[in-house]
Design a protein around this nucleic acid. Structure first.
Lengths: 366, 366
DNA sequence: CAGCTGTGTGCGAACGTTCTCACATCGTGT
DNA sequence: ACACGATGTGAGAACGTTCGCACACAGCTG
């Protein structure tokens, strides 16, 4: 029978029962320093008898390492972050690390609050999906204080921290090029497009033409728009930015509304490119609401490969991001730094994969 | 300019700079005990100047509370657990608690390992989706050691711990009753149906007829099957358990295969009820692979309301589980216990909601 | 046999907080 | 004048580990 409170057993209790000093018991149980086989057995059996469980808090206080990594996601409920966290925790588990997750809801105040909590809890490293790409004093402070930081999905300008991102621009460019190659000339794009120094899509395109845009410090939806524009430029097809109504919010309702407005124009696009999972669902909702059929009425390709795109009536051509891999890579980066690796910040951009299904066909001649 | 390592500032440093004792500085910064306004200002400004950040580890070591709750999910990547964790962390955040998440992958060894890690990290409470409903020594030990435990989604027999579950049997019964009321007499069901003391669906049905089944300690997919059977019994319609081929695995491939086999029979069902999100996707995949149309060839209703069921060609009639609410409830339960609430274990079963869309119609007379 | 080096053990000081005291100072009622 | 509670402060002991050090003893080497 276990006693009522086995976890009250401390290393001193074990030592007393085994008839050794706490230092010796500590060496056996903590697996450091010298100890004879005889004493090892005695201590271990005493520990077992008392139901001893080490108190990692005390250990961490003295070693200065908690074997915990903190993660700031936008929203753990989204499949995007859920998959990333899965990848992170898989790697963490194999190394005996715990993972504390928080949500920023893409709000700076929440992110700051979360980082502060994690830092006070003395996490060994921080994996953050940063919100403010041109400031983020809290992240600079974290780095300066010696806490390893890995950025995911986006990169803060001037922050000397590793990053794992996705080649949004390239994947988007290739996908739009594929749609163009199918003969489409009027491709609509539904994208979030908030949080940027650019006030309008036109201004953004102008800056690209002037080569005045640094892709790295853009939010993903802007990077994907960059790919869209780039594909048009490469194919020397005139841009019609009226086909890219910025949704200006990350909500399905807003996405649906913009899609419906776009498709109701007197000269609607013949194909649609959606910039992420939420916008894809929103657009699909709009399309079926309008009684339109993919691909006969409208070709469709999506960034983010969701379940339903596989078994949809025609499968939906989609770009899949390697999300658990992204999480794994981020975890490995942070673990390397925790283990003392120094040197230049490492930056990796993972390649998404385009899966061609039946949702993009040659446009019907009007 | 912040110095290189601001987080090295300790309460003693602040105290020295402010010209007071560490005890006094502690009282000001920790916000406990007496302190004069004058000293408060002095200490606070010294703290600010040094960039002082409290070390929660040290605080926890002495107070015995970490303001952290541990969560053991089956798989954080699944929308099911992701939503629950979202609910948990929302509540936790408002109380200044952190959340450590782990994955059991529905494996006992992983769950035991995760619980051990969390306990050693001295979490104040544990929220677990238990795997072994008729054993779980590790959870009994946790409860006995005084660590509050809340069970989610399923309940371990004999474990005196609060629980938040979903009324799977009732929701399933009502949904199947709805399909029966539409005139269907041959309703197929695709369900995981692993992990149970019952070897076969027939044996399970027999036990139900003998009233020898305690719904509480079944896995959700069996509870949902219970509802399916109950609906038939209530409507006095003869059961044909050949229509419920147990998938015996939690994988989309297996679910698709069983669905295809079922639909290829010489007398296939006229309606299908799927027992969870993964099985719904699998079944949908099978249906479209077979070139069948919902609802003209087959009516369909699903447990778990996924995105695509809303904007699917006909909307899919589906049961939505209140997942974030479940997480919130679990978090509130655990916080109550952490705050010293004693007394009987509380058990709540949340009601899912059935959303009727267009995927169930009267069967065509053969 | 002195001087190593390798192995094993114990003492006590950390780590950065909170908490229990003891004590000092004040205003106030008797 | 005195006791008394309310308010404020500091010294030092916790919390449960790890770690530096001193020491003890073995088996070598020269």
């Amino acid at each position: 029978m276990a006693q009522k409170r086995p976890d009250k057993a401390t290393i001193a209790d074990v030592a007393k029962l085994a008839g050794v000093s706490t230092a010796t018991a500590g060496r056996v149980l903590g697996d450091y320093g010298y100890s004879s086989a005889e004493i090892r057995d005695k201590v271990r059996s005493s520990a077992e008898q008392l139901g001893y469980r080490p108190n990692l808090l005390a250990r961490s206080l003295i070693t200065g390492r908690t074997k915990t990594i903190g993660v700031v996601t936008g929203d753990i409920q989204s499949p995007f972050y859920a998959s990333i966290v899965r990848g992170i925790s898989d790697v963490a588990r194999t190394q005996g690390f715990g993972v504390i997750v928080t949500n920023s809801d893409e709000r700076l105040d929440r992110e700051v609050e979360a980082v502060q909590l994690l830092l006070e809890k003395q996490v060994d490293g921080l994996i953050v999906s940063p919100f403010d790409l041109h400031g983020s004093d809290h992240l600079h402070a974290a780095v300066d204080s010696g806490c390893p930081v890995v950025q995911i999905d986006r990169i803060v300008k001037g922050l000397t921290a590793d990053s794992v991102t996705v080649d949004n621009r390239g994947a988007s460019r290739d996908c739009v090029a594929f749609i163009l190659a199918s003969g489409h000339r009027r491709i609509g794009m539904i994208a979030e497009l908030v949080r940027s120094q650019f006030d309008s899509v036109e201004e953004f395109a102008d800056a690209i033409r002037r080569s005045a845009v640094d892709t790295r410090f853009l939010f993903p939806s802007w990077q994907r728009l960059y790919g869209y524009i780039e594909a048009h430029m490469n194919a020397e097809i005139e841009l019609d930015l009226d086909l890219v109504p910025p949704v200006r919010a990350y909500s399905a309702e807003a996405g649906k509304k913009e899609t419906m407005n776009l498709m109701r124009r007197h000269e609607p696009p013949t194909a649609l490119f959606t910039a992420d999972g939420l916008m894809s669902a929103a657009a699909m909702d709009a399309i079926t609401s309008l009684g339109m059929q993919v691909p006969s009425d409208l070709s469709l390709a999506c960034f983010d490969d969701l379940d339903w795109m596989r078994f949809s009536k025609p499968g939906i051509t989609a770009i899949a991001q390697p999300l658990t891999e992204l999480g794994e890579a981020a975890a490995n980066f942070i673990l390397d730094r925790i283990n003392g690796e120094t040197g230049e910040a490492k930056h990796v951009a993972l390649r998404p994969t385009l899966t061609v299904r039946g949702s993009v066909i040659r446009p019907v001649p009007a």
